[in-house]
Design a protein around this nucleic acid. Structure first.
Lengths: 191, 191
DNA sequence: TTGATTCTGTACCTATAAGTACAGAATAAA
DNA sequence: TTTATTCTGTACTTATAGGTACAGAATCAA
């Protein structure tokens, strides 16, 4: 009953993600997104709203992707240690720039002082809360595998800290051998 | 032989640091700095150069301040464990917002994709290299205090990762009790 | 006091980027 | 085929922010 949309919103979000990831929210202009996607501004505004709303969509999509993968990885059978090692190791591509970007879009956004938008903060907090929850749940379930005095809650948070640190430092040293060594050493806390 | 400067450049850098720290480089306008400092733009440009140069001065100053403190803290007598615990603990005010800002200006800048300026990247890399060097040197010197197989180089890097992670997560959860618990758990790697 | 010199403040220029008005194109229903 | 409806692209408006021209003020040396 009307002219149909000429693009797949998901494709545009994917392209917008790449641009935002590479340059950050502030430094990315809508013109760059229109250039990269081929979609004119009025179409973007009609489909997603303003720049903040578009970024929020991109970020939520990013979060969902990682959460899905984290859920699968941390649900695998076998020792909890192995699951968590794989989880941490899975982020190495984000560190080394193999994905074309450096670091984590979420962490990059969290440390961006300009993003005081409540909705964005909320999305990031929710994401971190969920990731930590996945880690905590798994560590609690397999508590018997660790020695007496092991604290699954604190350990889950520590793993989150290490993860954030790797992502933050990813912007400088893409030495994946060093990253692996750190992960191995941190695994020493899961005993 | 000419009109003297009416302000102390160091004071201005201090004020600029606060503004940049709070809002980030991109989101901070020079007008905000002139408003906060009372110094008009032409004076800023004459004294520091353009916005990037000003930010670089601010960042270098910030780095020097922390490096000086780190040097003193890590040079203290006693067990290396204690020195490093104090070093990590010293960053808690940066985590909890007690300083009015959240997180670390350097990390915030490192994760800001818009800062592709080579000079800035260099300053940040140098800073991280020096911090890690201080940790490494101390751990190597006190190697005898740890058990066989202890690797001071990897441990130094791991401590850097934890530090970066705490600073990155500082933007969300200002629970200093949790931060302390993480530090205590990580100290378990220094044995 | 005078003059050379450098700083300060106002007011401006210019570029960029977010957001939109509007005319025309594409579709589905009638 | 006609028409209602929604999308698309061009071109525009507007605000903001980086940077500067210029006139006048403040200092020190002579």
């Amino acid at each position: 009953m009307a002219r149909p949309r000429s693009f797949d919103p998901d494709d545009v979000l994917e392209i917008a993600r790449q641009v935002f990831w590479q340059k950050g929210f502030q430094a990315t202009s809508l013109d760059e997104i229109t250039a990269a996607s081929g979609i004119a501004k009025p179409s973007l505004y009609a489909a997603f709203g303003d720049k903040h709303a578009l970024f929020l969509r991109v970020l939520d999509r990013y979060h969902d992707g990682i959460l899905g993968w984290a859920e699968r990885t941390l649900a695998q059978p076998g020792p909890a240690r192995e699951a968590i090692r794989q989880w941490l190791t899975g982020f190495i591509p984000y560190c080394s720039g193999e994905k074309g970007q450096r670091g984590c879009l979420s962490i990059n956004s969290a440390t961006d002082g300009s993003l005081d938008q409540a909705a964005l903060r909320k999305s990031i907090e929710r994401y971190n809360r969920r990731l930590e929850e996945l880690l905590r749940t798994r560590l609690r379930a397999d508590r018997a595998q660790f020695k007496k005095g092991f604290d699954p809650d604190i350990t889950a948070h520590t793993v989150m800290v290490v993860h954030a640190g790797l992502m933050a430092l990813a912007h400088q040293t893409p030495d994946s051998k060093q990253v692996k060594a750190v992960i191995e050493q941190v695994m020493g806390l899961l005993a």
